[in-house]
Amino acid sequence: MKRYFIIQSQSPFNDPAAEQHYALAKDLVDSGVPVRMLLVQHGTTVAHQGTQNSAFQQLLSSDVELYADRFALHERQIQEEELHPGIVAADLDLVAEALLAGDKVIWH
């Protein structure tokens, strides 16, 4: 089964669909397929420690691997040490590698 790589550009603070995307990522990983999610653009805003969103908290405690786009973090002046534990700052080469590895890459 191909792995999933989800690019999450939407923020739960502006887009209610983001919470559905988190739940879907959990369902996919619970179905036995590895899932990675890269937060990009406003999708990174939920990565800051102290944010309050229960759907994202559930995602944080799931087996979904979480990354945040370093460029988007820098734009928002979010320091890497300010991220929730478990979220790793990454560059977009991660997406290129996932595409080349044949992952199902989905833009949300």
Binding site: D91, L92, D93, V95, A96, E97, L99, L100
Partner: peptide, 8 residues
């Protein structure tokens, strides 16, 4: 993403 893909 295009830039990263060419880099890869």
């Amino acid at each position: 993403l295009l830039e990263a893909s060419l880099e890869a």
